[in-house]
Write a protein that binds this DNA or RNA. Structure first.
Length: 124
DNA sequence: CCCTGATTCGC
DNA sequence: GCGAATCAGG
Protein backbone atom coordinates (compact mmCIF):
# COMPACT_ATOMS: atom_id res chain seq x y z
CA UNK A 1 0.00 0.00 0.00
CA UNK A 2 1.68 3.15 -1.17
CA UNK A 3 0.67 6.53 0.06
CA UNK A 4 -1.63 7.92 -2.57
CA UNK A 5 -2.44 11.60 -2.70
CA UNK A 6 -5.93 11.05 -1.36
CA UNK A 7 -4.62 9.00 1.51
CA UNK A 8 -2.06 11.63 2.36
CA UNK A 9 -4.84 14.17 2.23
CA UNK A 10 -6.88 12.16 4.69
CA UNK A 11 -3.83 11.72 6.83
CA UNK A 12 -3.20 15.43 7.07
CA UNK A 13 -6.89 16.16 7.40
CA UNK A 14 -7.58 13.71 10.20
CA UNK A 15 -4.34 14.65 11.89
CA UNK A 16 -5.25 18.33 11.74
CA UNK A 17 -8.65 17.51 13.15
CA UNK A 18 -6.99 16.26 16.25
CA UNK A 19 -7.34 12.58 15.61
CA UNK A 20 -4.68 10.33 16.99
CA UNK A 21 -2.38 8.26 14.84
CA UNK A 22 -4.23 5.12 15.81
CA UNK A 23 -7.54 6.69 14.80
CA UNK A 24 -6.15 7.82 11.49
CA UNK A 25 -4.55 4.46 10.93
CA UNK A 26 -7.89 2.85 11.63
CA UNK A 27 -9.67 5.31 9.36
CA UNK A 28 -7.25 4.94 6.52
CA UNK A 29 -7.07 1.22 7.00
CA UNK A 30 -4.41 -1.20 5.83
CA UNK A 31 -1.90 0.61 7.92
CA UNK A 32 -0.75 0.78 11.48
CA UNK A 33 -0.38 3.82 13.64
CA UNK A 34 3.34 3.57 13.11
CA UNK A 35 2.87 4.03 9.39
CA UNK A 36 0.70 7.07 10.00
CA UNK A 37 3.15 8.62 12.39
CA UNK A 38 6.05 7.73 10.15
CA UNK A 39 4.39 9.27 7.11
CA UNK A 40 3.17 12.25 9.08
CA UNK A 41 6.64 12.83 10.38
CA UNK A 42 8.11 12.47 6.92
CA UNK A 43 5.56 14.91 5.58
CA UNK A 44 6.83 17.41 8.04
CA UNK A 45 3.75 17.25 10.22
CA UNK A 46 4.16 16.06 13.80
CA UNK A 47 2.38 19.28 14.69
CA UNK A 48 0.64 17.23 17.30
CA UNK A 49 2.64 17.32 20.51
CA UNK A 50 2.56 13.97 22.19
CA UNK A 51 0.85 13.59 25.54
CA UNK A 52 4.28 13.04 26.92
CA UNK A 53 4.65 16.78 27.18
CA UNK A 54 7.99 17.39 28.78
CA UNK A 55 7.08 20.53 30.62
CA UNK A 56 4.73 22.76 28.70
CA UNK A 57 1.63 24.38 30.11
CA UNK A 58 1.71 23.85 33.80
CA UNK A 59 -1.52 23.53 35.65
CA UNK A 60 -3.46 20.61 34.33
CA UNK A 61 -6.84 21.84 35.46
CA UNK A 62 -10.17 20.16 34.90
CA UNK A 63 -10.45 22.27 31.80
CA UNK A 64 -7.67 20.31 30.28
CA UNK A 65 -9.00 16.98 31.36
CA UNK A 66 -10.15 14.63 28.69
CA UNK A 67 -11.42 11.09 28.68
CA UNK A 68 -7.90 9.90 28.35
CA UNK A 69 -6.64 12.08 31.13
CA UNK A 70 -6.44 10.58 34.55
CA UNK A 71 -8.84 12.52 36.72
CA UNK A 72 -7.22 12.08 40.06
CA UNK A 73 -7.19 15.04 42.45
CA UNK A 74 -3.71 15.44 43.78
CA UNK A 75 -2.88 17.75 46.64
CA UNK A 76 -5.47 20.03 48.15
CA UNK A 77 -8.50 21.39 46.27
CA UNK A 78 -8.02 24.66 48.08
CA UNK A 79 -4.34 24.74 47.50
CA UNK A 80 -2.70 26.06 44.40
CA UNK A 81 -0.76 22.88 44.31
CA UNK A 82 -3.95 21.05 43.54
CA UNK A 83 -3.67 19.36 40.20
CA UNK A 84 -4.90 16.35 38.34
CA UNK A 85 -2.80 13.43 37.33
CA UNK A 86 -3.25 14.27 33.67
CA UNK A 87 -1.69 11.04 32.59
CA UNK A 88 -3.43 9.07 29.84
CA UNK A 89 -5.97 6.91 31.57
CA UNK A 90 -6.66 3.29 30.79
CA UNK A 91 -9.33 2.03 28.47
CA UNK A 92 -12.62 3.12 30.02
CA UNK A 93 -11.17 3.88 33.38
CA UNK A 94 -11.20 7.53 34.40
CA UNK A 95 -7.86 7.04 36.04
CA UNK A 96 -4.46 5.84 35.00
CA UNK A 97 -3.12 2.46 35.97
CA UNK A 98 -1.73 3.60 39.28
CA UNK A 99 -4.75 5.60 40.36
CA UNK A 100 -7.14 3.06 38.88
CA UNK A 101 -5.58 0.52 41.19
CA UNK A 102 -6.20 2.90 44.08
CA UNK A 103 -9.78 3.47 43.02
CA UNK A 104 -10.29 -0.23 42.75
CA UNK A 105 -9.11 -0.84 46.28
CA UNK A 106 -11.63 -3.32 47.67
CA UNK A 107 -12.80 -1.86 50.95
CA UNK A 108 -13.94 -5.13 52.38
CA UNK A 109 -13.81 -7.53 49.48
CA UNK A 110 -17.39 -8.61 50.10
CA UNK A 111 -19.41 -10.61 47.68
CA UNK A 112 -20.94 -8.46 45.02
CA UNK A 113 -20.80 -10.42 41.84
CA UNK A 114 -24.54 -10.72 41.61
CA UNK A 115 -25.42 -7.44 40.04
CA UNK A 116 -27.69 -8.57 37.27
CA UNK A 117 -27.86 -12.22 38.08
CA UNK A 118 -31.22 -13.32 39.38
CA UNK A 119 -33.59 -10.74 38.11
CA UNK A 120 -35.51 -12.40 35.35
CA UNK A 121 -35.31 -15.96 36.52
CA UNK A 122 -39.04 -16.23 37.15
CA UNK A 123 -41.65 -16.55 34.50
CA UNK A 124 -40.77 -20.16 34.27
C1' DC B 1 -1.55 -2.87 31.93
C1' DC B 2 -2.96 1.16 28.79
C1' DC B 3 -2.22 5.05 25.88
C1' DT B 4 0.42 8.62 22.88
C1' DG B 5 3.78 10.44 19.35
C1' DA B 6 9.06 10.55 18.05
C1' DT B 7 12.79 8.57 16.52
C1' DT B 8 15.56 4.93 14.72
C1' DC B 9 16.40 0.91 12.02
C1' DG B 10 15.86 -2.54 8.31
C1' DC B 11 13.88 -3.47 3.80
C1' DG C 1 10.28 6.34 1.14
C1' DC C 2 7.86 2.73 3.63
C1' DG C 3 6.59 0.50 7.81
C1' DA C 4 7.95 -1.95 11.92
C1' DA C 5 10.48 -1.68 15.92
C1' DT C 6 12.10 0.61 19.47
C1' DC C 7 12.30 4.66 22.48
C1' DA C 8 10.61 8.14 25.51
C1' DG C 9 6.88 9.74 28.83
C1' DG C 10 2.82 9.49 31.77
Amino acid sequence: MSWTDERIQQLKDLWSQGLSASEIADTLGDISRNAVIGKAHRLGLSGRPSPIKKKPTRGATILALTERMCKWPVGDPKHQDFHFCGKPSLAGLPYCAEHAAMAYQPTGSSKKREEERDRNVGAA
